[in-house]
């Protein structure tokens, strides 16, 4: 039975001239890369363009990859920079959620109260400094470790942790003052239930993609 090659082994093969190895890397990482870019862009067509351009850049610049970080982290870093450049071309700020369309699941029933709270929460997240928002997004939505976040953000491990910590503590401080908002407790109760149910599923999905 053929052993599945690791990302680093596939990278070695590409550097040795095997283009099929890069095709395998694309298959492995295109879905998670699309999810990451879709999270920031909220436009599927734009996210696809960024994914395509990111893989092309990775193929062109593979000699620069020195395996200090994982290939996935390096690819994510390329995608984030590509996305920032695309937004800059449009005169937009990548991390400014107000400039992007909100992707709402059309099948979900969205109550007015819940929508208001989500809007309030997004607004608070939007006020966070860019690096804190990025660390928060990568940790909570992408379920990445602080080591991976540090690699993607090209910063030390402790800095990645600190950015996340400051973001969450700041949100806590601001949202605690919103306890008087009607429906907040119910919203939080639902959110906690959804989190408990989603956490094992998210881990399983991550394992499949890896």
């Amino acid at each position: 039975m053929n052993r599945t090659k690791s990302d680093l082994e596939l990278v070695q093969d590409v550097k040795n001239g095997d283009r099929k190895a890069f095709s395998e890397l694309v298959v492995r990482h295109q879905r998670s890369l699309l999810r990451l870019t879709l999270r920031f862009t909220r436009e599927q067509a734009l996210a696809e363009d960024i994914v395509q351009e990111s893989f092309l850049k990775a193929y062109q610049k593979l000699e620069l990859f020195e395996a200090r970080a994982s290939f996935k982290s390096w690819l994510y870093q390329i995608a984030m920079n590509t996305a920032k450049n695309k937004f800059r071309e449009r005169g937009l700020d990548l991390m400014n959620i107000e400039d992007t369309q909100l992707g709402v699941d059309p099948g979900a029933e969205v109550g007015l109260v819940r929508e208001n709270i989500q809007t309030a929460l997004r607004a608070e997240i939007d006020k966070l400094p860019e690096k804190q928002r990025m660390a928060l997004t990568l940790r909570i939505f992408e379920d990445l470790s602080f080591k991976e976040i540090a690699e993607i953000m090209a910063c030390p491990y402790d800095t990645a942790k600190a950015n996340y910590r400051h973001a969450l503590l700041k949100l806590r401080e601001r949202l605690e003052s919103q306890d008087s908002v009607a429906g907040w407790d119910a919203f939080i109760g639902q959110a906690e239930s959804a989190w408990d149910g989603a956490a094992p599923a998210a881990s399983a999905q991550k394992e499949i993609e890896q």
């Binding site: 295109q30 395509q52 193929y59 699941d105 929460l121 939080i188 906690e192 959804a194 989603a198």
Partner: peptide, 30 residues
């Protein structure tokens, strides 16, 4: 943390055919 997580509403395409096409587009660009 749970409240922030609840904002995660990214809907990915599920079709395998979609990802085959995306893969083909990427390799064609290369």
């Amino acid at each position: 943390r749970a409240a922030v997580k609840s904002l995660d509403d990214v809907a990915l395409p599920e079709s395998g055919h979609y990802y085959d096409n995306l893969h083909a587009k990427i390799m064609a660009a290369i």
